[in-house]
Write a protein that binds this DNA or RNA. Sequence first.
DNA 1: TTGTAAGCGTTATCAT
DNA 2: ATGATAACGCTTACAA
Lengths: 339, 339
Amino acid sequence: MKDVTLKQIATQLGVSITTVSKALKNYPDVSEKTKNKIIDLADKLNYTPNSFAVNLRTRQSKTIGLILPTVDYNFFSKVFEGVLAEAEKRDYLVILLRSNEKLDVEKKQIELLLNKRVDGILMSLSNETGEFEHIKNIINNKTPLVLFDKIAKLINCSKVVINDRKAAYNAVHNLIKKGHKKIAHFRGSLMPQNSIDRFLGYKKALEDNNIMYDSSLVYLCDNNTDFEDGYRNAQQAVAEHPDLDAIFAITDLVAIGIVKYLNDVNIEIPKKIAVFGFCNSFMSEVISPKLTTIDQPGYKIGKKAASILFDEIELKKNNKPISFQSIEIETSIIERGSA
Amino acid sequence: MKDVTLKQIATQLGVSITTVSKALKNYPDVSEKTKNKIIDLADKLNYTPNSFAVNLRTRQSKTIGLILPTVDYNFFSKVFEGVLAEAEKRDYLVILLRSNEKLDVEKKQIELLLNKRVDGILMSLSNETGEFEHIKNIINNKTPLVLFDKIAKLINCSKVVINDRKAAYNAVHNLIKKGHKKIAHFRGSLMPQNSIDRFLGYKKALEDNNIMYDSSLVYLCDNNTDFEDGYRNAQQAVAEHPDLDAIFAITDLVAIGIVKYLNDVNIEIPKKIAVFGFCNSFMSEVISPKLTTIDQPGYKIGKKAASILFDEIELKKNNKPISFQSIEIETSIIERGSA
DNA sequence: TTGTAAGCGTTATCAT
DNA sequence: ATGATAACGCTTACAA
């Protein structure tokens, strides 16, 4: 009653395994009659190809790996949904792993995925990732790789990102246009390119508007506890800069921590201090005041990254050359109550 | 430079494939000398077993499937983390799928997973799932299955749940103790057992405290848009029942929608209306007032479910009989500002 | 149109 | 201690 094989169908029907295989895969060189006979029996026996054997034979697993730094918050969930949407179209399965922002976890997971011989890997780097040997392993292994969101420019592969610098620039510019002058930036960890770029965008917007950059207005959020980082730093920033009138946060979660603190001590948002987030996560609609933020379209990013990956997998399969793409997904400002 | 096989190592060293295989797997019947020789070369060539071949031979994929109804919110992310924790211990990989609360998606995904020949399946039912043929397929297939959170009692397999009825009872009892008398329940979809159980817990708590059950105080949230469901129903409930003094919500997200609405129309929480959530998601700490809720330990649930699944996989492998377990994970009341 | 046979890379049984 | 050989279930070039 279990594990029907081509062989069983073949012997039961008195034909060869080859014929069964061909019939089931709709090869042209099988007569209608035998083909139907075979298909009928296969249906009846509930035949499904043994994917292990198919994998071995075709050297494909029809599976990709997705390594996310974290899976809790809105953005990466959306990315995952986007990836899934593309994967489903192609009957691909997705193995999901989370590095927890740790370099050594990331290394181990790449190894696991490579040993599993997934057809391709999609990943966003951990905050700790400052060396790239393990990533180059993927490339040496000839496994297609697409990096997204937290990438490293040094790695030679396709990438899907937003223009973090421009988005941050726009956010801060928007703040300045509204009359804010003393604008703090709660930045992310030092490694990831997007954290750096957002910082640079902040700085550039100040410069372009003749506001002197003041490094004491930059606070670091790198405990992977975004919400608390925001809360704690807001406390400190308010104490250190009584005339602070706006904060541009690296991410919504940090911004929400800020909002929480300001609410707790009854500092009016945005009247006294404006708060600008980054991500447009679900939660930004839920808090009071609602968060003004940058929309970072996770679903789109995941979808695009996956689509590129599948294209590369296809090219590789056909021994065609692959030329890497670097895609920039558009972001936009979502104006709500907090700024 | 790629895809080193046992054969290559064997010919290069002038030994048989068998010996290489044995040496690499630390069989006792290989001399130290040859063993070392083989291990050294394997290391040097960076040999990794071809998992496709291993799968085919051992009939194991070292992979499990996890089907979640949705992946956005806190609870299921936590479940996933718990599953991952157990999987890592055993060098298992996890294929993650989300049914999106749709029965037909769920069916298709089970098929995919079964065709992929995963070693086991972990799942939480979609809200639409009221028939179980597709689930029974898993069992007929002899693939170990553990259901968690949204389960169906009719399915004969191991289960990991919380006592939804008791938890809901405690929540409502807590509300009554605090003097609330007109308590609405914003319930979930009709299918899932946990939705039913929470409703029953609510009803029972009323009865035990001599409060007449009033079906007009029960509102349905089944649009899979929990937050908006909460908001909209709160609006309606307040309009229909001016003397409403508490709401027990099926889930935090619904509760947050309620809080949002009450804040918007300046109804004091919990003074005028108390709000009780369910889940203890991250967000319940973020809103104002903070949410009083039931802690539903997702990480623990995922971990336990996975651990049972791996045990069953092991038993099956050794042809030992499996006896199904039904585990109840403890919940607790988290008192915060909203009730 | 159908079938034979080789091969994918392992593991496991049985000889030597 | 080592190796020959079959088997896992499929795909595919080649023959008939």
